[in-house]
Write a protein that binds this DNA or RNA. Structure first.
Length: 564
RNA sequence: GUGCCUGUAGCUCAGCAGGAUAGAGCAACGGCCUUCUAAGCCGUGGGUCAGGGGUUCGAAUCCCUUCAGGCACGCCA
């Protein structure tokens, strides 16, 4: 058992089913077909611990008012040998269940038993899933979009791991094709500009205008001088690319590593060319009738694939497009490496590509629902209430490294995972470094540090936690204690929900709630100084809270400090 | 023009496989430290869920439509 909720749901489901059967047997209800029984946690405490809307769902079939059905079910309900102490009908026909606290006590035992594994579930059953994220072009530094995609992707991967999936984190290196060509042209132009003067050499309109291109050629010239002026253009470009590309890639790897992201696979686009996988893919598409040739180029047929228009795969000049490489890449993921599910994180500016890729998957014989694309909206930085576009220090677009220099890894990862992927994210740079309750990162970390402080103080006095069997857990009856225990019990379900919706942000919000419940408890109840039995029970509760906070923070990828 | 995302309290956002009186944090205001970290807690006020129609016993949630903001519609990636 991973979650105490399973047990409770089973109990309620059984009790309800039996009651309906009994009512039918006695002729109080017509013979109805039971829909899946929905059990939810009511918002209002007065509405019990759990509720079901089954009476409302049966209204149509039974041709009776929901209220009456609820009453009939309640007449037949038998709650012996369950947590349920009371069931009552309310509102338009809800049946509310009130539980005794045993489930909360049992859950503390579950946490004690599972420890750092508490919260893990197994909805994945070992399924092989790839999460591909960031995959930034190695033509420049990582930007805010990469920062958000990185935090999100890594946490989605983490949440899936905790949910029983076999997860591979992958970075797709776009080290081939047109953008590398453009990279070379840009480097070459900047190189010649350095030597002959800026106004003597034109810079290509569609080149990379970033300052980092100039930095590269300056460094190159410092190291190797102007010897490239006398060689053919192709050779010159190649030399500059060979110099700058590995540097960019190293920088990307270093930034991501600093950001706490470790990939399992760095997949090189150029390997798709070397292994002829692009041709292979085009051939297959041809065999399956998805290819048309016109205007000297090779196209994916829009008509056949169910797209609005045809898409170029091989240009007139013989070079494959990004899309051709991407189809081959995904064929590699699914058919060569055997992933049964692939999740890609793309910025909102790529959403137009989703439909095309899904259609392309069908075209190569992969069911499109196996490819899931998480689109995240773009980031705006705020400082002093104003939008910040450029780094103050460098005067260039704010890079991931700039962000980490300014706010640190914890704040960055936490903030990017506070909101759902679909929401436009305003990142408040001032707030992220503020050391106050305005700042949710500190709020949560402070709760953890506070707990550790209690544990330290007790240890100094020589007080050790007893074995769980020797603790009178049922002394925990204060409202703040119950609220905290209920919150802790929700972790496994939260993890599962985060995995199912691919929204780790709900865990971030959850851990804020845990911290809040803990702080309330802390102000209402004492641990040290209470008599031994109560002290032990609270010690267990506090330590369980520590475990929960730590486990969640580890999924988000941030520190759980023991002192602050 | 077409498609996608977004619109909920002053601000930032949850809720959106339809359910009970729409929530949280921040900001504002008023309280709480001789006791385990006040980076904390407790309380108060604050809403035409962008507007309008429809489906339903019931709509912030589903459908249609209008408006506003963002993004995409390339032999770019």
């Amino acid at each position: 058992m991973y979650s105490i909720f399973e047990k409770i749901r089973n109990q309620i489901e059984t009790v309800v089913k039996n009651a309906v059967s009994a009512a039918v047997a006695k002729g109080k209800l017509p013979n109805v077909e039971l829909p899946p029984i929905m059990i939810e946690k009511p918002r209002e405490e007065a509405h019990g611990d759990f509720s079901t809307n089954i009476a409302m769902q049966l209204a149509k079939q039974a041709k009776k008012a929901p209220n009456q059905i609820a009453h009939v079910i309640l007449e037949e309900i038998d709650c012996r040998d369950t947590y349920i102490v009371r069931a009552e009908s309310a509102g338009p026909g809800f049946i509310n269940f009130f539980l005794n606290s045993d489930w909360l006590y049992e859950n503390l035992a579950l946490i004690d038993q599972r420890k750092e594994h508490y919260g893990e579930v197994d909805i994945g059953r070992g399924e092989k899933v790839m999460v591909e994220f960031v995959s930034a072009n190695p033509t420049g530094p990582l930007h805010m979009g990469n920062a958000r995609g990185g935090a999100l992707g890594d946490c989605i991967a983490g949440v899936l791991e905790k949910s029983g999936y076999d997860v591979t984190r992958e970075f797709y290196i776009n080290d081939a094709g047109n953008q590398i060509e453009k990279f070379g042209i840009s480097l070459e132009a900047r190189y010649l500009q350095q030597i002959y003067g800026e106004d003597k050499v034109p810079f290509p309109e569609d080149g990379y205008h970033g300052e980092d291109i100039i930095d590269h050629v300056k460094e190159y010239i410092t190291q190797y001088g102007d010897k490239l002026v006398s060689v053919p253009s192709d050779e010159r470009k190649k030399a500059l690319i060979d110099y700058a590309l590995p540097k960019n890639l190293k920088r990307i790897k270093d930034s991501l590593s600093r950001y706490g992201i470790e990939y399992d696979v760095w997949f090189s686009e150029s390997s798709l060319y070397e292994n002829r996988e692009i041709e292979e893919t085009i051939d297959i598409l041809k065999q399956r009738g998805y290819i048309i040739e016109k205007d000297g180029a090779v196209w994916l047929s829009g008509e056949k694939a169910g797209l609005e228009k045809d898409e170029v795969l091989i240009r007139q000049n013989g070079y494959p497009t990004y899309m051709a490489a991407d189809i081959a890449y995904h064929r590699n993921k699914f058919l060569k490496r055997g992933f049964s599910r692939v999740i890609n994180l793309w910025g909102a500016d790529h959403h137009g590509h989703v439909k095309r890729m899904k259609a392309a998957m069908e075209a190569i014989g992969v069911p499109s629902e196996k490819l899931q694309i998480v689109i995240f909206q773009l980031v705006r930085l705020y400082r002093g209430g104003e939008i910040e576009r450029m780094s103050k220090r460098t005067g260039r677009a704010v890079s991931l490294d700039d962000l980490l220099d300014e706010v640190g890894v914890d704040a960055a990862r936490f903030f990017f995972n506070m909101k759902t992927a679909g929401s436009h994210l305003d990142f408040d740079l001032d707030l992220a470094v503020e050391q106050s309750n305005n700042n949710p990162v500190f709020y949560v970390q402070y709760a953890h540090a506070r707990i550790c402080s209690i544990l330290r103080k007790l240890e100094e006095e020589g007080i050790k936690r007893k074995a769980i069997e020797d603790i009178k857990i049922n002394l925990l009856t204060q409202p703040e204690e119950l609220a905290l225990m209920k919150r802790l019990a929700a972790l496994p379900e939260e993890v599962a929900a985060a995995a199912e919706t691919l929204e780790p942000s709900r865990l971030t919000r959850y851990v804020i709630d845990v911290a809040s419940d803990f702080h309330s408890f802390y102000n209402a109840c004492r641990v040290k100084g209470e008599d031994d039995d109560l002290l032990q029970a609270r010690l267990l509760l506090v330590d369980s809270t520590r475990v929960v906070i730590k486990n969640v923070l580890s999924i988000i990828g941030i520190n759980a400090p023991e002192k602050m």
